[in-house]
Design a protein around this nucleic acid. Structure first.
Lengths: 90, 90
DNA sequence: TAGAAGTCGGGTAATTTGGGAA
DNA sequence: GATGTCCAAATTACCCGACTTC
């Protein structure tokens, strides 16, 4: 249905960002990243959103004109709309 | 309004929440989610109810903290900022 | 009827939560 | 202001064998 958003656990997101799960939780608490709560209270994050954040969701993207045969970026149709970056202002 | 009550199996609900089928069963046992039992004892969940839980049915609060000098954040497909304590059951 | 897959029940380890202080 | 670590508690994940569903 949707973009096939897989849900990631705080530990997964933390490992992707190389930060502590606690930090990911703070991002969610601050509204910098969308979070879905389970009836039990645990959080789940959308894989597409996390991926967008990892890639530099919207702007700051340094692109080096690399060799010719290089794979661009994930041109996946995933993600209906780029999300607002958590680091909009830092 | 016809909520289109399609019944989902524990495995289906578990996949939606990215949890174990066992966890979904636990939610039903704790009364956190409505469940219909088959004569054999297996549980079935209403698709409409599960979907509501995924979006944070009851607590749809829009957090507006974006200022004018910020990046325009598009409206996400799902994830208005589902905030809300689990259930007060702690 | 037989078979495979899924689910149930209980129990134990790992993860996550929330707040506080460094 | 933001991040990593401490604690206690809750929630979740995986183990087994047995039953139900398709």
């Amino acid at each position: 249905m949707d973009t096939g958003d897989r849900l990631l656990t705080p530990g997964e997101v933390a490992a992707l960002f190389r930060v502590d799960p606690k930090t990911v939780t703070r991002w969610a608490a601050a509204g910098r990243i969308g979070s879905i709560r389970t009836p039990g209270g645990h959080r789940r994050f959308r894989e597409s959103e996390v991926r967008a954040l990892l890639e530099g969701d919207g702007v700051i993207e340094e692109m080096r004109e690399d060799d010719a045969a290089n794979k661009p970026r994930n041109a996946g149709p995933t993600n209906p709309g780029a999300y607002g970056p958590p680091n909009g202002l830092r």
